[in-house]
Simulated scan of single mutants.
Amino acid sequence: MLRGATFVRHAMPEVDATRPPGEWILSSDGINAAAALQLEALAASAVSSPERKAVQTVALALRLPESAVATAVSFREVDRVESVHDGFRDARRAWIAGRLDERHEGWETPDAAARRFHEGLLAQDARHVVVGTHGMVLTAWLASQGLVADAVAFWEALRFPDVVEIGIPLLRVRAVLTDADGRFVLIKRARPGQEPYWTTPGGGVMLDDASADDALRRELHEELGAEVELGEIVLERQLDSIHSEVFYAARLTSIDPTLADGPEFDDPSRGAYEVEVVTLDELRTLDLRPSELKELLLAQR
């Protein structure tokens, strides 16, 4: 089962206007930079985008012949119709930010790119995999998993080449949060055309979070404007082969909704988020998800 992934953004290629970018090979500086990564100690399985510059980068970093690097189209760069012009980077920034317009006609959407990248990762059966890939599609996937807070800033900071390490399972953290009266602080989710349901507050652990505890405190501040005291883990569950979720007991010490500034509040497509405080009796009547958490809470009271 996959326990870790090392993503390698390819090194600098030799630009060749007579060939499509997928056939570009590394420049001499790119070859040296890829070899300097020295990832051979990982003893990992190797897979890459089919683009030659990505295959070369992984092979050099792992001290392998190119023939030893498997290829998977899931890890290719974003499909797009693009010419290099004065504003091409602005168009890419807008794509990464999810602000698609007429410049992106014929482009793969960020969601579609992230989805097929994710499917490619799910297909890996090694314990650790090194993935040769590209800046835009990698950033889209990391953002879709909640692993980066500012996707544009992350993408702009990526180097040629660059390395991003993640541990697996990817962790989501949530709080079974109670106030001074023992009531549960929940998030009511309402989406057009669907019945409402309730969840506990929390979210994904980002690459720059120091720990799962820090990630949960950050999420509670973003979603609720809350400060809390964290307690023990009350539930752990595996979501799929690369995601798990942990629920912590937590006690509310202060809350100021005016401080809530999570990204979900800026995206109407996600539906409505409402903070509700409910008693145990009220909890019995709600569609609290996941259902096993509701069963656990009712059994303990």
Rank of each mutant, 00 (worst) to 15 (best):
T6Y: 05
F7W: 10
V8S: 07
A11M: 07
A11T: 00
E14P: 05
A35V: 06
L39M: 13
A44T: 10
V47Y: 12
S48V: 12
S48Y: 09
T57K: 04
T57S: 09
A61N: 08
A61S: 04
A61F: 03
A70L: 03
T71G: 05
S74E: 15
V81N: 14
D86L: 10
F88M: 10
W95C: 08
R99N: 06
R99M: 06
F117S: 11
H118A: 08
Q124E: 15
W141G: 06
W141F: 10
L142D: 03
A153D: 07
L158S: 13
D162S: 15
L171Y: 06
R172G: 15
R183M: 03
V185R: 08
V185C: 11
P192N: 09
Q194T: 04
W198Y: 12
W198D: 04
D213N: 15
L216C: 01
R217C: 00
H221D: 01
E223F: 01
L224I: 05
E236T: 01
Q238P: 13
L239C: 11
I242D: 10
I242V: 14
I242A: 13
A250S: 08
T253Q: 06
A260S: 10
G262I: 03
R270W: 10
A272E: 08
V278Y: 01
L286S: 00
R289D: 09
